[in-house]
Design a protein around this nucleic acid. Structure first.
Length: 483
DNA sequence: ATGTTC
């Protein structure tokens, strides 16, 4: 059991567990949290899991955990780990089962007050046009060849098919395509699961939400990002569906043998990994990129259907009615990046699991207008609560390998939430607050109740005070579509 | 998160 006494306070928002805590640790753990969130993080296995991650071979700097952290498979959700290249490792469990789970925000000039009476109709149109639910099938089934092509090209495939604009791609992490995706490293089973799932939302905490931009904190940045106070925006939160899930399952199994072959000592079987330079490590990296590109194409296809829904309700998409992309960012991904770590320029494989990239101003992988302000960080709150749009900072390179938080973070397990919260009653409460709810499953709705999550405002305040990201805008939900 | 246990 890890207690507060094991955490050395670096400042009001950063705590450290040093390598002397456990002999096998190769790097320290940094916890980004205020006192209350630190106590929250110590209640489940989050910090224990972060300490386990810090025992892996070939790490750089420290393991970071975000204020929205909660326990996950092997590595906590809300964790960041950097492995040295070429002598470090890559771990499927440190990316997560939902490879490139992520979020996309599009914003409009449609005034909420004048659009309010159309929201029930809009929610219904979005629910109809964006298939959801476990096993949900999309409207664009792909041949085996087309799936491979989509996996190599990501959102570029969607551009070719007419589901995207050039600006959408510009305003997507990695421009919507990770180079080096390898469909040959993806099992037939994963492909069979994925072929029918493009353009689907899925279930669990995945959702599509209509929000009103409630408050602006950085007017200059908001102008550049196209965020207008009092106007409608949408969030699309989903990932690589059964495709990415199967890839993770396959490689977690494969790597059991790799761990033995390469003589890697593990603190937890769930942290199976392989040397990043090994054939096993490279195969996973190629497959993970294929899943990441699937997710980029998936959110792009959903954005297309969302735009169609807006058009059905508000008429032709011209002028103020256009839904312009703000950004699209991954929550679960491993990336080869350069970072200055303890004064040394290093190439590392940054594993972000329930954490986003949050690069500061000047980063070349951004469109010109964002190079001035830094990379947008999209932080969806729990259902029925606020969401945030932030910007990455220059300082976060040394703090978190250029990473930030990804959401509110669970405090109640799915099973407990399902037992304690009635979906029907929750729907009534949300509707009473003026949120139009379209949910395929009431027990599913209960799992995502606001009470099951931390306070997203507190999480955002922490990353802001810690210097990882800064506030641009707060969003309030007015319609939610869920599986 | 997930054809919620091949």
């Amino acid at each position: 059991m890890i207690t507060k006494q094991d955490c050395r306070k670096i400042n009001n928002y950063i705590w450290e567990i040093s390598t002397s805590f456990k002999p096998q640790m190769t790097v320290p753990v940094w916890i980004f949290a205020d006192e209350e969130l630190l106590e929250e993080a110590l209640k489940d296995l989050s910090v224990t899991q972060a300490v386990n991650v810090a025992c892996l071979p070939g790490l750089a700097g420290h393991v970071a955990i975000m204020p929205d952290v909660h326990q996950g498979y092997g590595m906590p959700i809300g964790g960041v780990m950097a492995a040295r290249v070429p002598d470090g490792i890559i771990s499927p469990g440190a990316v997560g089962y939902d490879i490139n789970c992520g979020v996309r925000v599009l914003a409009s000039g449609i005034d909420y007050k004048s659009a309010k009476r159309h929201l029930p109709e809009l929610a219904t149109a979005l629910y109809r046009n964006c298939p959801s639910g476990v096993g949900g099938k999309g409207s664009v089934p792909l041949s085996a060849e087309e799936l491979d092509k989509m996996c190599r090209q990501g959102a570029k495939w969607a551009l070719e098919k007419g589901y995207a604009t050039e600006e959408d791609l510009q305003r997507t992490e990695e421009f919507g395509c990770l180079e080096g995706a390898d469909p040959n490293s993806v099992s037939k089973r994963a492909k069979d699961r994925g072929r029918g799932q493009l353009g689907t939302l899925g279930a669990g905490n995945h959702f599509l939400e209509v929000d009103v931009i409630e408050e602006i904190f950085d007017q200059d940045a908001a102008d550049i990002m196209g965020l207008y106070e009092g106007c409608l925006a949408i969030q699309i939160h989903c990932g690589s569906r059964g495709f990415g899930h199967q890839i993770c399952t396959d490689y977690v199994q494969d790597f059991q043998l790799a761990v033995i072959n390469y003589g890697i000592q593990l603190p937890d079987r769930e942290l199976v990994c392989a040397p990043i330079s090994s054939k096993e490590g490279q195969a996973y990296l190629g497959a993970m990129k294929a899943a990441a590109n699937f997710a980029f194409a998936n959110r792009q296809t959903l954005a297309y259907h969302a735009r169609q829904s807006f058009e059905e309700v508000f008429g032709s998409q011209t002028g103020n009615h256009a839904l312009r992309q703000v950004y699209d960012i991954a929550h679960n991904m491993a990336k080869i990046e350069q970072h200055n770590i303890n004064g040394e320029e290093m190439t590392v494989c940054v594993h972000r699991k329930g954490a986003t990239r949050a690069f500061g101003p000047g980063f070349e992988g951004l469109p010109p207008e964002y190079q001035e302000i830094g990379q947008p960080v999209l932080v969806p709150g729990s259902m029925g609560t606020e969401s945030w749009i932030l910007l990455g900072t220059e300082a976060n390179d040394a703090l978190s390998f250029g990473s930030s938080c990804h959401g509110a973070g669970r405090v109640m397990s799915r099973s407990k939430a399902k037992k304690e919260i009635r979906g029907e009653r929750l729907r009534g409460e949300l509707e009473k607050e003026g949120i139009n709810v379209r949910a395929g499953s009431l027990p599913g709705l209960a799992e995502e109740a606001p009470q099951a999550y931390k306070d997203v405002n507190r999480v955002v305040e922490t990353v802001s005070q810690a210097g990882i990201a800064h506030k641009v805008a707060r969003l309030r939900p007015v319609a939610v579509v869920k599986g």
